[in-house]
Design a binder for these strands. Structure first.
Lengths: 329, 329
DNA sequence: CCCCATTTTGTAAAGGCTTTCAGAATCCGA
DNA sequence: TCGGATTCTGAAAGCCTTTACAAAATGGGG
């Protein structure tokens, strides 16, 4: 069906070894010969068979993006952005990408083995055992939106601490002093970073921010609305609610409206992620942009570097955030 | 590193051919022998090498999902759902999935050739030439959320006509007579289906629905809000706005609010897709659920059937819709 | 014009599995 | 117990590249 290296060899009058080199190590074949080879290839519509190549090279040029997150997947806009970034970068470096959920890989070890990939990017709350398992199998591994102390592994994260500061300083600049954080139970890493940052920064600015100022809730609109109702019913009602993502912030806005409070006049609301929903809410939601696309790109680049055997790969890459001010705060 | 079929052969005392059969055609090897093989495999942590298998079989068990849509990708929640469905199904049937945008495949034919896949699912507005190209290359092709008359190809779509009817009949049951459709410039197929359905159904129910009742806009919140402003400023203002997706509906709600109109009292609003944003809007958005996940599953199943050489594969599969009534209408 | 150092090219052996074909083992009825 | 029909198993030929290793060609300097 498709022509092979032999066909090209025959037509161009050189050996298959030379054809092979013309394609994968052009500089190792003389200009004139290379020309002939490419012409023949052109005529025959030849292009190297990736499978055979993988077979011979013992390398697939294929990587996996594993989303380690209960329930959610690519449906989470933030992860979809990361995914997009990975796709962009891997496309650029000619790596093939397979996307999967960690669950799929955990279930059947055999399955995991079958998907022959050279490396994997683990997004979110990856289990350390999974990392060990993969590394011990000789795979290159990179973490995105997570860190794993004690592991020798490149991580790509956003500047959670700085981001929280941006939000808080903005709110303070608008005169807010009673600021509450509505924290979703996300992956431990993210939850912890934002929680800690909030307390530290609030404290350092002399805000009355003990742990009572932080309210945990499940990562759904309803749970957030419910939790926020409680917050807004306190005698010393907060003047600003800082949702740790846009969904929670939307829940906060709902709660406010149900209580007859106006946003942002009576209570300001901010989110994190800057998802598309921000522009659909009324008022539009002020949100901290986390550059998921860039995080994806960078993690793919790190993995690529790992595969290329580069040394001195940064163990930690931090992507800056940016506050997008809109009507809600 | 990894053990091979030879290791298993040696340890179990049978030939590699038998080991191979034990794994891919278990019924063709005697119970007793099979047992021995599996035990040895267990001990050696052997599992067949997918690359080598693909090489020998001349088949990759790998399929591609191509999103044919300018700009948007997996970031579009609806497509993410389709994608999820495809992932679920292909996981079930042990097919590997690569996700890509049509743009990536168009750019370099060579590239497309390199990704050796057995088949492809084209989502959205695929170019007929791309289909011909792929089919002529011997790939199995399936269309999802699109149809292509004149092509011999299975298509999986949602019941656009029925869905539009559900929405209109619901609105009419609530007493609405002046209903306007806010139609986004999506893929020609979808736009046309919804447009036509609206006109036919409205007409058949004696609604004053000429083409003036349909307003086209770009698929963004702002464009929708702008278009809707015009609709709502007419002397015979519509009492209901039927957005052809949730983003447009959100835009309609914005426009209404800007004009001081209450939703749903002064103007009812409905959307399509039932995306997560519905629950975040205030009031919550009544929307027509299109089962993207199911569409994905079914298209993967069709592709699988095609690959399995099955005959009598339905050329058209229609997935039913369901109206989710919430506060906005 | 020869010789040695360099490039360039070719030969042949993997790489791990599937599958055809033929021979070996097994089963069944008589 | 024997013959023939079945079912199992094994040897070997691919599948398409890459890559030592070795041979051939090329280029310069003397």
């Amino acid at each position: 069906m498709n022509s092979t290296i032999y066909d090209v060899s025959r037509l161009s009058g050189v050996s298959i070894a030379t054809v092979s080199r013309a394609f994968s190590n052009p500089e190792r074949v003389r200009e004139h010969t290379r020309q002939k080879v490419f012409e023949a290839a052109e005529v025959l519509h030849y292009s190297p068979n990736a499978i055979a190549r993988a077979m011979a090279r013992q390398r697939t040029d294929k990587i996996a993006f594993l989303i380690c997150k209960e329930g959610a997947t690519i449906l989470d806009e933030f992860y979809a952005r990361i995914c997009n970034g990975i796709m962009g970068e891997s496309n650029r470096t000619d790596l093939e990408l397979v996307i999967s959920t960690a669950a799929d890989w955990d279930l059947t070890a055999s399955n995991a083995k079958n998907k022959q990939v050279d490396g994997a990017i683990l997004g979110g709350n990856a289990r350390p055992e999974l990392v060990s398992e993969l590394q011990s199998r000789g795979l290159a591994v990179v973490l995105v939106n997570n860190r794993m102390p004690g592991f020798d592994i490149p991580c790509v994260v956003s500047d959670e601490y700085g981001g929280v500061r941006q939000v808080l300083e903005y709110l303070m600049s608008r005169g807010h002093r009673r600021i509450a954080m509505l924290a979703g139970r996300f992956s431990p890493y993210i939850l912890n970073e934002r929680y800690r940052a909030f307390l530290e920064i609030a404290k350092s600015h002399g805000l009355p921010a003990d742990t009572r100022a932080i309210k945990l809730c499940d990562p759904t609109v309803e749970s957030a609305a419910e939790a926020c109702r409680e917050l807004l019913s306190r005698p010393d009602r907060p003047t600003a609610i800082f949702g740790t993502n846009d969904i929670l912030a939307a829940g906060a806005m709902k709660a406010a409206r149900r209580l007859g409070l106006r946003v942002p006049e009576d209570v300001a609301v901010t989110g994190i992620d800057d998802t598309t929903v921000c522009g659909m809410l009324e008022p539009e939601l002020t949100s901290l942009r986390i550059d998921g696309y860039r995080m994806g790109e960078l993690s793919a680049a790190r993995l690529q570097a790992l595969l290329a055997g580069e040394t001195d790969i940064p163990q930690l890459t931090v992507v800056p955030t940016e506050l997008r001010v809109r009507g809600s705060a």
